[in-house]
Simulated scan of single mutants.
Amino acid sequence: MLHLGGPDPRSELAANADLSARELADLKTALDAIDARSRRAPWTREVLRLIEEHPGLRALDLAERLGRDKLPFKADVRRLKALGLTESLETGYRLSPRGKALMTHLNSTTE
């Protein structure tokens, strides 16, 4: 029988919005690395902004707004979730407190 072995570490990570300058820089570096390895144009910030602007919107609708297929889009969102930046809802996604803190930081600096 399968049972929960404790809290999901991603949830704990996502709930942490009290980020130091070093943590914010590390997250920005992680996003830059994901974008640099991407076969297409940089996408991480675009997806985060889309989720920020449209919390709860279905993955298919979000993907269509970017001209992308749903399944690869969902895989990308899972990469952002692994960094603690997004949370899955019953329908769609939202930024986690950590993701909101990062976006506030990114929006206040020139990239």
Results as ranks from 00 to 15, higher is better:
residue 2 L to M: 09
residue 2 L to G: 09
residue 3 H to D: 13
residue 4 L to Q: 11
residue 4 L to S: 10
residue 4 L to R: 13
residue 5 G to A: 13
residue 5 G to H: 09
residue 6 G to Q: 08
residue 7 P to I: 10
residue 7 P to G: 11
residue 7 P to F: 06
residue 9 P to I: 08
residue 11 S to G: 05
residue 11 S to L: 13
residue 12 E to L: 15
residue 13 L to G: 01
residue 14 A to C: 08
residue 14 A to I: 04
residue 15 A to W: 01
residue 15 A to H: 02
residue 16 N to G: 03
residue 19 L to R: 02
residue 20 S to M: 05
residue 22 R to A: 12
residue 22 R to I: 00
residue 22 R to Q: 13
residue 23 E to R: 11
residue 23 E to F: 01
residue 24 L to E: 01
residue 24 L to V: 00
residue 27 L to S: 07
residue 29 T to M: 14
residue 30 A to K: 00
residue 30 A to H: 05
residue 31 L to E: 08
residue 34 I to T: 05
residue 35 D to K: 05
residue 36 A to H: 10
residue 37 R to Y: 07
residue 37 R to F: 04
residue 41 A to N: 10
residue 42 P to Y: 08
residue 43 W to N: 07
residue 43 W to A: 12
residue 45 R to Q: 14
residue 45 R to Y: 07
residue 46 E to C: 02
residue 49 R to Q: 11
residue 52 E to C: 05
residue 53 E to N: 09
residue 53 E to W: 03
residue 56 G to A: 10
residue 58 R to T: 12
residue 58 R to V: 06
residue 60 L to C: 08
residue 61 D to I: 01
residue 61 D to P: 02
residue 61 D to M: 11
residue 62 L to R: 01
residue 62 L to D: 13
residue 62 L to Q: 15
residue 65 R to V: 08
residue 67 G to N: 11
residue 67 G to T: 10
residue 68 R to M: 15
residue 70 K to M: 15
residue 71 L to D: 15
residue 71 L to C: 04
residue 72 P to L: 04
residue 74 K to C: 07
residue 76 D to E: 13
residue 78 R to K: 14
residue 79 R to W: 05
residue 80 L to F: 04
residue 81 K to R: 13
residue 81 K to S: 11
residue 82 A to R: 07
residue 83 L to D: 00
residue 83 L to C: 03
residue 87 E to Y: 02
residue 89 L to T: 03
residue 89 L to W: 05
residue 90 E to C: 01
residue 91 T to A: 13
residue 91 T to S: 11
residue 92 G to K: 02
residue 92 G to I: 04
residue 94 R to V: 03
residue 97 P to G: 09
residue 104 T to K: 06
residue 105 H to Q: 06
residue 106 L to D: 06
residue 107 N to T: 09
residue 107 N to C: 02
residue 107 N to V: 00
residue 109 T to E: 15
